[in-house]
């Protein structure tokens, strides 16, 4: 997830990471305030256009959406049946645009630049006694854990399917949590083994 970086020399590659993250935050907030389908459609088109500017293909834009295409499909049908099909198009398009925009930033920004930018943006936390390095470690770990949890859940569901238990929330949740807790312990050991010192 963090090694998405696609080398290049476009304007988007050269923009500072902090600026790109800030733009994502602002765009993400504004798009949730928009309530018209044309605005979201324009936003979607503009995001696709940015892929062109960055010298990337539409295939890499699609790659950002592909992992969640089933969730989008379920969301589309559920929204369509409950609140109407226009609303369903609106919500799915908004979700897809944000995923593509977030993906575009990942494709054009080195992970190390991204984390550095986050740390710099968090410097003011020092004044309330919070170490920005710790916050930025927690942020990047959480982003990394989300796809890992999805993978572990899929593995456990497959294993429980053999026992006919893949639909039981408890039979899936317990192994998933135990496995992730064990993984977390290993990760903390690994971080400490590399002499990570958050006190600086």
């Amino acid at each position: 997830m963090f090694e998405l970086y696609h080398p290049g020399t476009s304007v988007l590659h050269r923009l500072p990471a902090g600026f790109k993250i800030l733009t994502l935050v602002i765009a993400g907030t504004l798009i949730f305030l928009a309530s018209d389908l044309p605005i979201v459609a324009a936003f979607f088109a503009a995001t696709a256009g940015l892929y062109y500017v960055a010298g990337l293909t539409l295939a890499s834009a699609w790659a950002q959406i592909r992992p969640v295409v089933w969730i989008l499909a379920v969301l589309f049908v559920a929204q369509g049946l409950i609140t109407g099909w226009t609303m369903a198009v609106f919500i799915v398009l908004r979700f897809a645009s944000l995923l593509m925009l977030a993906g575009l930033i990942a494709l054009t920004t080195r992970t190390s630049d991204m984390i550095d930018a986050m740390e710099r943006g968090l410097w003011y936390l020092r004044y309330i006694g919070v170490n920005p390095a710790k916050v930025s470690l927690a942020l990047s770990l959480a982003l990394r854990f989300i796809p890992v949890l999805a993978t572990i859940t899929r593995d456990v569901r497959e294993a429980q399917k053999v026992r006919g238990l893949e639909r039981s929330i408890v039979a899936v949740a317990i192994p998933v949590i135990v496995r992730t807790l064990r993984m977390s312990d290993d990760i903390s050991d690994a971080i400490e083994a590399r002499s990570y010192d958050p006190k600086i």
């Binding site: 969730i71 379920v74 969301l75 559920a78 170490n131 710790k134 470690l137 927690a138 942020l139 770990l141 959480a142 982003l143 854990f145 989300i146 890992v148 949890l149 999805a150 859940t153 949590i177 992730t180 807790l181 977390s184 312990d185 990760i187 903390s188 971080i191 400490e192 990570y196 958050p198």
Partner: peptide
Amino acid sequence: MTTRDIVYVALFAALTAALGLFPP
């Protein structure tokens, strides 16, 4: 906050995010 605490904080934030994948 030890390193272990930070990892757990990140894990449970991610777990809550993963639970959001179930359609509401």
